[in-house]
Amino acid sequence: MGVDLESLSEATSGAIGSLLSTTILYPLDTCKTKYQAEVRAHGQRKYRHLSDVLWEALSNGQILSLYQGLGTKNLQSFISQFVYFYGYSYFKRLYLEKSGFKSIGTKANLIIAAAAGACTAIVTQLCH
């Protein structure tokens, strides 16, 4: 059995999409984490809103600090999404070949997605 180029293509597309969304939304995630981790001594709060964390970084010229850890997050995101999309595409193709159907229904789609998700969880936990 050769390389499944269709599954490989879909997996790469999904992983690249994941990289883009992770990179774009990462500062928001960092702000949320910083906001939630704030020490609230004597009822005083430095940040009243999530946006206060962002404005502080902007006003102090520390916008790049919101991207600390992005490389590791992108690697994790790329691998997990690649495995998921490859598994989903592979299981979908396998299902269509074995069943003889031209398309998949909702129930089969959910089962295939669950199988791909389970494989992703197993692979990412083994690599941890």
Rank of each mutant, 00 (worst) to 15 (best):
L50H: 03
R93E: 13
R48A: 09
I79A: 14
K73R: 15
D52R: 06
L66Q: 05
V83P: 05
Q44C: 03
S80P: 11
L75V: 15
Q68A: 12
R93Y: 01
T72N: 08
Q44F: 08
G71W: 11
Q76A: 15
L94Q: 13
A57Q: 09
L50M: 07
G71N: 13
Y90E: 11
E56I: 02
K46P: 01
R48P: 00
G71M: 10
F91D: 06
S89M: 07
Y95Q: 06
G43N: 04
S59Q: 12
E56C: 03
G87C: 11
L75M: 14
V83M: 05
S51I: 12
K92H: 12
K92I: 06
I63W: 04
Y67H: 13
K73D: 14
N74A: 15
H49N: 10
L66T: 06
G87T: 05
Q68R: 14
S80A: 10
V83C: 06
Y86T: 01
L94C: 05
Y90R: 12
S89Y: 04
R93W: 00
F91R: 03
G61D: 10
A57F: 09
T72I: 04
L54M: 13
Y90T: 09
F82I: 00
H49A: 03
Y84S: 10
V53D: 02
G69A: 04
A57G: 01
S77T: 15
S59M: 02
F85M: 08
S77G: 15
L94S: 13
Y95K: 07
R93Q: 15
L70T: 10
Q68L: 09
G71V: 12
T72Q: 12
